[in-house]
Design a protein around this nucleic acid. Structure first.
Length: 335
DNA sequence: ACTCTACATTTACGCCCACC
DNA sequence: GGTGGGCGTAAATGTAGAGT
């Protein structure tokens, strides 16, 4: 396989014979790379099958250092980290950017957003040994890269050859959801991170769904075009009437309470509303509002906007693709 | 009957420490 | 000195029971 390997700081020098004599196999080789980028020059899409990706990297290693093969304990090869990426779409690039920026205010459970640059959100601590999730606008990243490439004025193999206008056009509005799963994530699910064991059970979509689950849980808002406050009140009343068991009389105490919480969130913001509310009551109200199609993410983005704020803006983002399901992805994805 | 409080459970992070 | 296991902690949710 004719592959050009470049970019090493210095030529690889290692006396295998001496090392083998002296201490046995006290070394290992770590390959850290994006298989998709290695294979096709970009990772806008790619395979989500682990083995072909691993195989490609192994070939690369063996072709580059044929003499290395005999010193490696093949059965012990392990996978230390897997990046699984799928993407969703917004109508325009600008909308994608707004959406990702709005995501920065979303949190659920232990998964909370870390402030990233505009167009990027991180979920999970930077050096977590379990997992981290990165949501970002891809096109922005590429355009920055292209601009840099142009400035550097590289003569050979400019990136613009890989990122064709057609490809760039296709990537418009793309939001990337990258889940980095580390050894401990697999450990805790009793999944072996041995390369060959993992290849047998590797389920990119399943793993990805599981690791991003709590983010989507916060986004579970349904399709909504326009929301007026009185419609929310009406919905709450319709969905949660309290019927007296004996007299059959209908009251709306519960629905009204939830509506009051909603108003509080709108006027004072999520944090203040929660602080001034008891845990249980607040939770109940959120559940009820959720049932009316108001996602947690939406409610958290109402902070301090005052009563004039219409709910519409954030809905636009939610409307994009996250109806009830996960974002639609291409058949392939980068692993 | 509805709320709210107190305690239990779940999930992920952080710190410590033994171990090469 | 960096790594991984163990264990405690924090935050959010779940649940049972007491107060009005």
């Amino acid at each position: 396989m004719p592959l050009e390997v470049s970019g090493f700081i210095r030529p690889f020098q290692f006396d295998f014979r001496t090392a083998a004599k002296e201490g046995g196999q006290n070394f290992y080789v770590e390959i850290k790379a994006s298989p998709a980028k290695l294979m096709q020059g970009h990772n806008l899409y790619g395979s989500d099958d682990l083995w072909p990706c691993a195989e490609f990297m192994i070939h690369l290693l063996y072709d580059t250092y044929p003499q290395l093969a005999q010193f490696l304990d093949v059965p012990y090869w392990s996978v230390e980290q897997v990046d699984i990426t799928y993407h969703s779409w917004c109508k325009t690039e600008n909308e994608a950017l707004q959406f990702v920026n709005a995501l920065q205010n979303v949190s659920n459970g232990q998964t909370r957003a870390r402030t990233g640059y505009s167009g990027t959100v991180y979920f999970g601590k930077a050096n977590s040994r379990i997992k981290k999730i990165k949501v970002y606008v891809k096109l922005l990243e590429i355009l920055n890269l292209l601009a840099k490439d142009k400035r550097a004025g590289r003569g050979k193999a400019p990136l613009s050859a890989i990122y064709t206008p057609k490809l760039l056009d296709w990537a418009k509005g793309m939001v990337r959801w990258e889940a980095s799963l580390k050894t401990r994530w697999f450990q805790r699910r009793h999944i072996s991170n041995n390369l060959f064991d993992l290849c047998k059970v590797f389920d990119a979509q399943g793993f990805w769904r599981e690791s991003t689950h709590d983010i989507f849980k916060a986004l579970e808002g349904k399709h909504m075009r326009i929301i007026k406050d009185d419609q929310i009140e009406k919905q709450l009343r319709d969905k949660f009437p309290t019927v007296n068991a004996r007299s059959g009389k209908v009251t709306y105490g519960k629905a009204n309470a939830a509506y009051r919480v909603y108003r509080a969130i709108k006027t004072e913001g999520w944090i203040e509303a929660k602080r001034t509310c008891s845990v249980g009551a607040f939770h109940n109200a959120i559940e009820m509002l959720h049932a009316c199609g108001l996602s947690k993410a939406l409610l958290q983005n109402l902070q301090g906007d005052g009563l004039k704020c219409e709910v519409i803006p954030f809905i636009r983002y939610v409307e994009i693709n996250f109806g009830e399901q996960y974002p639609p992805f291409l058949q392939q994805s980068a692993a």
